[in-house]
Structure formats: structure tokens, C-alpha cells
Design a protein around this nucleic acid. Sequence first.
DNA 1: GTATTGCCTTGACTTAGATCAAAGAAAAAG
DNA 2: CTTTTTCTTTGATCTAAGTCAAGGCAATAC
Lengths: 233, 233
Amino acid sequence: MDTIKQIAGIPLFQGLSPEYLRDLSAIAIEQVVKRGQGIFSEGDEGKGFYVVISGRVKIFKLSLEGKEQILHIFGPGEPFGEVPVFAGSSYPANAEALEKTRIFYFPREAFVDLISKTPSLALNMLAVLSLRLHRFTALVEDLSLKEVPGRLAAYLFYLSDKQKGNDDLALEITKVQLSSLLGTIPETLSRILSKMTKERIIATDTHGRIRIVDRKTLEKLAQGEIRLSQPNF
Amino acid sequence: MDTIKQIAGIPLFQGLSPEYLRDLSAIAIEQVVKRGQGIFSEGDEGKGFYVVISGRVKIFKLSLEGKEQILHIFGPGEPFGEVPVFAGSSYPANAEALEKTRIFYFPREAFVDLISKTPSLALNMLAVLSLRLHRFTALVEDLSLKEVPGRLAAYLFYLSDKQKGNDDLALEITKVQLSSLLGTIPETLSRILSKMTKERIIATDTHGRIRIVDRKTLEKLAQGEIRLSQPNF
DNA sequence: GTATTGCCTTGACTTAGATCAAAGAAAAAG
DNA sequence: CTTTTTCTTTGATCTAAGTCAAGGCAATAC
């Protein structure tokens, strides 16, 4: 298919001249991965990075006991696995497709050459990494300074923003995945969702849709101003 | 004093021609901050970034209840506050001097201009941000998948590596700061240190020096292979 | 289309680590 | 040098969230 058109549509490559887009499409290698299939593992030597064309990819860490922490979930147009390209190291985490996913692979050397010749590409990549640092800062804050209900509340706002500010949210991922993204386990997530429902902060539709009922209270939860009331009394 | 020499010694600026070093020293603004003095706050509009010349700076987040999570501690030669330069946003965390510290401030616009003209500077900056993402990945893993003794063990190895692989470590920061860096509180840190001492994994010298006694067990703790034995029995 | 696998929820229990309190030691500040 | 602040430790208690267990439901797979 038309590789150039697909590459031209990737935000990271906005503002590049047609000539450079042609260069990029010459070095890009297409790959299709099935749901549940790994793309790279923590510690693998990284000789290039990827961009999602269609589908979704999760980036995650595993503990020895098998607990998983999802760091990101990337969709169409988003690059991943760039760290070893510039730091000369190995991938710091694992990548796996959440569904059937098409990706482009860009080998390191040719890409670094291109970046040296095109300042706007360098600045785009700097912006991508900076934004990612920004998000990581928020993740560390969540894990260290907020309780699980607060993290969930923050995630619901993130979803609402992404879905045009709507109150009626489609939960794009399973609750198992959401719990891993929030740094907790499915049981805890389930309990907190039912507590929020009982307190009329949210309403849980059938089939995983969640409706924000009390935005104000949810906001206070996300900020850590209030807590969910305790089971006793 | 000789600004150019100091700027030439900053790793981020390695490989730059004397001409560009002169340009940099022309836009750099020197600043001296006292121990405990803030440099920027979360949410401040970021119009430039900083490099530590001497002294130390902590980057941290605060919760509403006042709990602090330290994200980094930066020393001489290390840049900080770059995120808003490239992401066009505000500082995602707070910065404060741990002691009397001299820093250079580089205004955004002039720096972005220079980066556009010098690919090696762009690649250096990409390497710095990538390395920082790598470290954040480890921090998230620690906070989410490891217990406090494991994080402490990992920190002791980090210190040992930094101090020439020695077993006898100088703790460079107070235990209050260390607990904030590990995502816990001083009481918990104190208890774990004394437990590790009782189990002959470390020995605590007078005046905050720590000696690694049982490297093997400490390694297993850091990997999460074993736990500190419980108080009972 | 039935079987098997993974998802989701609820209950009983355990626990790592936080909170509160207090007091001595060390280090800045004046 | 002396006062005040910050650091550090130990004990008693509390609690958010994890573990273990089990049952029903939904969705892939064969």
C-alpha cells in the first residue's frame, strides 16, 4: 500500500519535505503483530524504534512474581521504543500488541542520519520525548502521592477529555488492563468502582460503559482533596 | 569569571565548536540560589532550562497533605527543566536547591535556534531526555512493583557504583531526603535500615556511613527475589 | 456450537507501610 | 556559644490495598 501517505500522516513527521518523507518510507519496515504477541522485551538491544499504524500496543514492566505495571498504551500515529535509539542502550520495558496491530520499524542508523539533516524532525522528536517525560512525572506522582480512587478519578477525566468532554465513557480497555495501568489489581479496582457507584459519583452502564454523574466530587477525588468514605458506619 | 570554560565542561555541550560555545555563553544567565530556595514551581510557564554548575538541586512533587516525592537530584554538569522548552508547556514539577548552588539559565528561543543549526547538540539533548526516560521507567517499576527494602537495596547499589564500586558508602543526602526519593517516610526507612543491620546485610557506621556487608543478599533484595524476614518469630 | 479460557465481582483475611507521639542527637542560625 | 530548627529513632496503632478463594459471566477458540 501507499507507505508514503501513511508516513506523512504521522504527527512526528509533520513539517517534513516530500523528499525526506520519501527517505523515511525507504527505510521503514512494515510489521503485523497479533493480539498478545510481543514486539520487544526489556533488555533487548534496541537498534531502532516503532510507530503504530493501526491497532494498539502496551508498554509494560513485570515483577518476578508476575505483577504487571503498564507504562503506556499507544495507538495509531504514536512512536514507541525510541529510548535506545538515542541513549545507546537497550529497551527499558516490554512491548506487546493488545490487538492485531500494524507497525513501522525505523532502523536506528538511517534515522539518526536523517535527524542530523533535518532540524524540524529533531525538534519534533524532542517534543515527543518531553511530553512523555511530562506524563511519566504525572504517573510517578499518582503512584507515590495518590490513592487508587484518586488515580482512577484522574483516569476517568483523561478518558472524558479524549472523548470530546463527554460524560458517558467507553472504557476502551479491559478492567484487568486498567488496573495494571493504575498500579493496582482487578479486585481493588472492582471494589472502588462499586463504591463510587454506591456514592453516586459514577454510574456503571451495562457492558463496561461508565457515566460520570458527580463531576465535582470526582474532581476532588482526583486532586486528593477528599477520600471515598469508609465501609464502616 | 570564565563562562565559556564552564560551559565547555558541560557534557550536554560536548562536541560543539568554539563558535557555538561562544553563542551559548552569550545567552547563558548565571544565578546563585541559597539552600532551600526554590528555582521554579510546578505549573510555572517555562521559558528556558537550567544547568547546575556547582551545588545540588532537587526536582520534586508535593501532595496536598504535604508529602513530597523527589524525582531527581541533580549535581554539577546536569541540565534540568528542559521539558517545557520542547513541549511548549509549563514545568511539571518543583525545583529547589539542596545547598548553595550556582546555575546557568538558557532562554528557550535562543537555545532552540542554536539546536536547529547544530545537529550534534540536538542529538546530545535527545540522549539526555532518553536517559531520563530510562530512569523514570526504573522509578515507576520501583514504586509499583517493589517494596521499600528492595528500593533501598537498589539505591545502595546505585551509590556503590557511583562511588567506584566501594562497599563503604557516604550517604550524600539526609535520610529525610532519601526516604522522599524512595517514595516512603523517614520512620519506615529508619526501621528498614535497622532491620538490615540486625540481619548483617549492612553495617551502619557512625555519622551516616553505610557499609555493604552481604552483597549477595542485598542483590536478591533489590531483585525482589527475597524479603526481609518479619519481626515475628 | 460447545468448550475452554479469560474477565469480573464479592467475601474473608493478612500485611506493608503510614500515622501519631515522643524524645534524644545533630546541625544551622543568630 | 547558645538557641532553634531539623534529623533520627523507637513504640503503639491504624488502614489502604493486597492475597486467597470461589462463582458467574463473557468471549475466543476449536
